[in-house]
Computed example of a mutant assay.
Amino acid sequence: MGFYDKLEQHRKNLNDNEEEILTYLLNQGEQLDDITIREVAGHFYTSPTTIVRLTQKLEFSGYQQFKDDFLAALAIQTSLGELYSLDNMIIKTKQLINEEAIHKMTRTIHEADNILFFAVGLSRFPAEEFSERLKIIGKQSQTFIDPHIMKHNAQIMSEKDLAIAISISGRHQSNVYAATSRAKIAGAKTLSITGFSSNALANLTDLQLYGFSSPLKINGLDATDRFSIHYLTNYLFDKYIEQYLHLDTSIT
């Protein structure tokens, strides 16, 4: 299992303090090679045992294996040549993809009578594109502009329906989370596509996809790109038509 696979599967097991430490470690990049476990512990006024426990929650044997595997993952990216930030986002996002999970998602999409997308702001654009592409292949799919209508439709879903929630932050206090919670209570299957973090929306849903992004606010407004979200929705759609329409998406 690769470095990012372990993070994807086990990051939700971390508490808030451990999440903060993990974010710090990942942000060090190649410089982490020169940082000892005692230095990390000292930075957070905690003990080395806490750092070891954190890495073991992520299925590493300890801090050294975490560091070695992280640096190896960075080396793979570097070997691909000089990359722009968008290239790095896609490489990291691709490393997070679990093919077994993708297979479950395509099957869930195939079996769903109706597919409702919950997304607001800039996340509506990948949701709308995915929804329209599903309509082309005969699936009943819908997006919403008004969050009140979105939440109303969520609560009248059934166990034969699928809710796909898209949110970079995945935060608890949001219309997307509220709609997804109502859909889940109604018995619908739920799938989330969020930024790579331990977040409330991903913890709520039955199935999860994660993408890397660079948070950006301008004059207090969210301007974070959804490039990795577009990548994931396209990847999921391509896998669906390969499996159920038997089309070779590698042919252009």
Rank of each mutant, 00 (worst) to 15 (best):
A73S: 15
T55S: 05
E19V: 13
Q95F: 07
Y24N: 09
K57N: 09
Y24C: 07
M89R: 03
Y45R: 05
E59D: 14
T93N: 06
V40T: 04
P48Q: 09
Y45E: 08
F60S: 01
Y84D: 14
Y45A: 08
L26K: 07
T78P: 02
G81Y: 10
G62H: 04
L86F: 15
T36M: 04
I76H: 13
F66Q: 00
L54G: 01
R53D: 09
D87R: 07
L58I: 03
L86R: 04
T50W: 02
H43G: 05
E39C: 08
I35H: 02
D16M: 06
N15P: 06
T50F: 02
I51F: 00
Y84P: 03
Y24A: 10
A75W: 05
I76F: 15
L58F: 05
D69Y: 02
Y63C: 02
H43M: 14
D16L: 14
E20D: 10
Y63W: 04
D33A: 11
D16S: 15
A73Y: 09
E39A: 13
H43V: 15
A41K: 09
L25W: 02
D69S: 12
Q95P: 01
H43Q: 13
T78N: 13
A75Y: 08
H43L: 12
L22H: 00
L54S: 04
G42N: 15
Q64S: 14
E82I: 07
Q56D: 02
I91K: 05
F66G: 00
H43A: 10
E82S: 12
K94N: 07
I35Y: 00
L22N: 00
I21E: 01
T50C: 04
H43F: 15
L32S: 03
G62F: 02
I90C: 05
T78L: 09
L58Q: 01
T49V: 11
T93A: 07
L96D: 00
Q65I: 14
I51Y: 00
D69F: 03
D34S: 11
N15I: 15
Q95R: 11
G81M: 05
K57M: 07
G81H: 04
A75Q: 12
I21R: 00
L26D: 11
Y24M: 11
I76C: 09
S61E: 11
D69L: 04
D34G: 08
I35Q: 02
F66T: 00
K67P: 02
N15C: 09
I97K: 05
E20N: 14
L80F: 14
Q31A: 14
E20Q: 12
R53Q: 10
A72Q: 11
E30K: 06
Q77S: 11
Q65P: 04
N17S: 13
S85W: 09
T23V: 14
T78C: 06
T49F: 05
S79Y: 07
Q65M: 10
L22G: 00
I90L: 10
L71C: 07
L58T: 01
H43E: 12
D68P: 06
T50M: 07
T23G: 15
G29K: 04
T23L: 07
F70W: 06
T49M: 07
L54C: 05
I51W: 00
I21Q: 01
